[in-house]
């Protein structure tokens, strides 16, 4: 069989692309699917494969969910807390920063790099730097507060402030990514719309409300979905900013993923941990579908 030049090119393209696919299937899908299997088993991490127990792990999670002080209940309420604090803060701040960055010309690259740098920094490094900033007495924030005669705050050391303190770091870390996406979206809006609106006498807030915001809708939907997912999967920051990585103080910062890790590798109950990941998977799926369904709007101009 003789292939045309174009067919051969396409074949080569598939050949190269398939390497990534194979990697994806073996390294990500296969283990992910295994966890569905493990979730149905009484699986001790030390012993490996255990007997099939049906829905027992899920039943255990369900029971724990309704115990007032269980780790899993704390994990789910905190994770919801991170999303509720983090996502709106991130969306609003990133949009504000993007609009400002869009205005400036001088040093604009420098500013973009500054905002983007945390995003490409390892979460562990970020966590340690912020641990130092948050330190009582010797930390930078404590010293600034001292100068301003504001009482020092316990931040991550207090069960009341810890979650918000970590959420703030998570927002700071991922802000740059949202800013870049917003900037790209803003650049896409044709200048003619603004010009036409100005001729009709619109200005400032009205331009923003009726042109910028509606036309950014696809970007906003995309970023909301992505940042929601990233907050639902929060792990490294909490692991490194809570005392001994326990999600404390008093379980006030633990997340679902952290509990997965602790159940699987500290309590050696891999079945329970796998079931918890499956639950998280469906929670993320559900939230994403709902967001895509209700946030997407079409605006025609």
């Amino acid at each position: 069989m003789r292939l045309t030049l174009r067919q051969r090119q396409v074949l080569w393209a598939y050949a190269f692309l398939s390497i990534a696919l194979v990697f994806f299937v073996i390294i990500r899908w296969y283990p992910a699917l295994l966890s569905f299997n493990i979730a149905f088993r009484d699986w001790n991490t030390f012993k490996g494969a255990g007997p099939w127990v049906g829905l027992e792990n899920y039943a255990a999670i369900w029971d724990d969910l309704w115990k007032p002080r269980s780790d899993v209940r704390a994990a789910f309420t905190n994770t919801l807390g991170y999303v509720l604090y983090g996502v709106p803060a991130q969306m609003v701040l990133a949009l504000a920063v993007a609009l400002l960055l869009d205005r400036i010309r001088v040093l604009s690259t420098l500013f973009r790099v500054a905002y983007f740098a945390p995003y490409v920094t390892s979460a562990v490094a970020v966590a340690f730097v912020w641990n130092w900033l948050y330190l009582p007495q010797t930390g930078l924030l404590a010293q600034v507060f001292d100068l301003l005669r504001i009482p020092e705050q316990p931040f991550t050391k207090s069960p009341d402030q810890a979650l918000a303190s970590i959420a703030a770091v998570a927002v700071w870390q991922t802000l740059g990514y949202s800013v870049i996406i917003y900037l790209a979206g803003i650049k896409q809006i044709p200048a003619t719309y603004y010009e036409a609106a100005r001729i009709d006498g619109a200005a400032g807030a009205r331009l923003f409300q009726h042109i910028t915001l509606p036309l950014l809708n696809p970007v906003i939907v995309y970023l909301t979905v992505l940042s929601t997912i990233s907050f639902l999967r929060l792990f490294a920051l909490v692991q490194n900013m809570s005392p001994q990585g326990t999600g404390g103080p008093l379980k006030s910062t633990t997340t679902v993923v952290l509990e997965v890790y602790r159940k699987g590798f500290s309590s050696y109950d891999m079945g329970y941990a796998a079931a918890l990941t499956v639950v998280l998977f469906f929670v993320i799926l559900l939230i994403t579908v709902v967001q895509l369904r209700f946030l997407t709007r079409r605006f025609e101009y």
Binding site: V25, W29, Y30, L34, N37, G48, A49
Partner: peptide, 18 residues
């Protein structure tokens, strides 16, 4: 299809102790 196929593999070849 890939997912279903993989699930099949997973179900048949239940991982045993190394």
């Amino acid at each position: 299809c890939l997912t279903v196929a993989l699930l099949g593999v997973v179900a048949c070849v239940a991982p045993g102790m190394p």
